[in-house]
Amino acid sequence: MSELIRCEHLTKSYNGLIALNNIDLSVESGKIIGLLGPNGSGKTTLIKLINGLLTPTSGEIFINGTRPGVESKKIVAYLPDNNFLNSWMTVEQIVDLYTDFYADFRRELCFEMLSRLGISPSVKLKTLSKGNKEKVCLILVMSRKARLYVLDEPIAGVDPATRDYVISTIINNYDPEASVLISTHLISDVEQVLDDVIFINNGNIVLHKTVDEIRQESGKSVDALFREVFRW
């Protein structure tokens, strides 16, 4: 049980606009956490800070005890919201790249998952359909044996069958030493899989409880509670 994410009075602002407002957060290993909030709530900012793509304006963020940098990037597997694949590589070449740079990358598992989804290694990435591109991105990330997985909208652009596949991959990959942070709008599809839920709005953490606590206390699903809390 280690503390994989620790935010202390973490603040990030751009041009006077406060994206994250003095956040305190602690995420332990062995959990699947939902980061839920409307657009512009600060979710993406927090995710970028975790991945070292942004630096804090004030306050601290620690990933497994170190500030985001080379060491944290070795143990964090990030699935961004957009397609990060370049167009000219083949599937095999991008797998090679992951093998090269990430010591925790499980190459055989990756090829196994790709073949199960019918994606051939020699195919050029740019010829893949949008759905297949997302699957490849997900497989690359889940093939790493990371300590922290950060998935930004992993199921938004895919069909329901693939959603089930994504969710069962996440469950299958579960490791008590690792945690998965899922940022999504599609709450009702994932809430069964979550341990903890974080509601974030206007740069503040509004709620941080377990799914069962929420259902017990409010008598509603997390999805229903979300709609209530974030009603316009």
């Binding site: 699947i32 089930d164 469950i171 579960y174 069964q192 899989v193 979550l194 341990d195 799914v211």
Partner: peptide, 14 residues
């Protein structure tokens, strides 16, 4: 525990 989790589509901790 893991098999049940996958079968039910829920978290192994649960």
């Amino acid at each position: 525990v893991r098999e049940v989790a996958v079968g039910a589509g829920i978290n192994p901790n649960t």
